[in-house]
């Protein structure tokens, strides 16, 4: 008992400090670092970028428009054959500036300067010049953290706009993403436009992602294509956050072998549609 008391008088301060440090760090973790990002937001406020590198963004924007046109043409064509066509909801959203990047080397995150005060919530979809960028994974009152589609853990249900061949787009930590097809012999060729598919639960359909750069049909277990993302993810300076309710509970059958995450539930025979 005496030893304990002596220990306490000698180390009370230290023990208190350690407990305080660990518990506050834990608290910080519990609310996703909101305090840190808030401080970061207020500190970087004067530095947040205006309009620069406009040329590059304009080019990306033109590319996006071209891809949207390709997508619209294809939709028009399939509209004539489909009865159950569902109009994609028009997207309107909040414009936000990119104020930070991932706080770590393994995650591809960006930090935007709009948060719950502007009605941004987890699950909202983020697009920018060039098309899809990612989705919001954490919000604080005035910032939000976006998981980019180039993150290795990101999965996006996607389709080839021309042939409606379905697949999953996975990130690779750079400006190329990989699309895995569900079929053994998908109808694709280099240059095809990739858009989000209607089976994606986390993203609305028909947002441009990029263009196919190369295809590896011999890849096992599924044929793969390398896609050049049309949005300049590494130099992004602004983005638009669109409200979107992810449909987390879709109890449709999932293809064996298909990755469950952003879940695309391909229906058999759909890819064969013209």
């Amino acid at each position: 008992m005496f030893a304990l008391r002596r220990w306490w008088t000698r180390h009370a301060l230290k023990a208190g400090m350690v407990t305080l440090a660990i518990s506050s760090a834990w608290l910080m973790r519990a609310n996703d670092g909101a305090v840190i990002y808030e401080t970061y937001h207020w500190l970087t406020r004067p530095l947040q970028p205006g309009m620069s590198r406009e040329q590059q963004f304009e080019n990306s924007y033109i590319l996006e428009l071209q891809q949207r046109i390709v997508e619209l043409e294809n939709q028009n064509r399939s509209l004539q054959t489909l009865n159950d066509y569902e109009a994609a909801n028009p997207l309107d959203g909040v414009r936000a500036t990119v104020i930070g990047r991932g706080a770590d080397h393994w995650w591809q995150h960006i930090v935007l300067n709009r948060g719950s005060r502007n009605d941004v919530a987890t699950g909202h979809v983020v697009t920018g010049p060039g098309g899809l960028i990612g989705r919001v994974v954490a919000v604080s009152p005035s910032t939000s953290r976006v998981l980019l589609i180039s993150d290795p853990t990101s999965r996006v249900g996607a389709k080839v706009s021309r042939s409606r061949a379905m697949g999953v787009v996975r990130g690779q930590s750079n400006n190329r993403v990989v699309m895995e097809f569900f079929e053994k012999l998908p109808d694709v060729k280099a240059g095809d436009v990739i858009v989000t598919s209607s089976y994606s639960r986390l993203f609305p359909q028909d947002i441009p992602i990029g263009r196919i750069e190369s295809i590896d049909l011999t890849k096992s277990p599924a044929p793969e294509a390398v896609i050049q993302v049309s949005s300049p993810l590494s130099i992004l300076e602004w983005a638009i956050i669109h409200p979107f309710e992810p449909q987390e509970t879709v109890d449709l059958p999932v293809l064996p072998g298909a990755t469950p995450e952003n879940g695309l539930v391909p229906e058999s025979g759909d890819g064969a549609r013209p």
Binding site: V18, A21, I22, A25, W26, M28, R29, A30, N31, D32, G33, I36, Y37, G102, A103, D104, W106, W107, H109, V137
Partner: peptide, 21 residues
């Protein structure tokens, strides 16, 4: 070790807690 734990938790807060820093 305590410093590593505290700063690791803080970095987890800023990125993603899994895998932990």
């Amino acid at each position: 070790a305590v410093a590593g734990l505290v700063l690791g938790l803080l970095q987890d807060a800023m990125t993603s807690p899994n895998p932990t820093h």
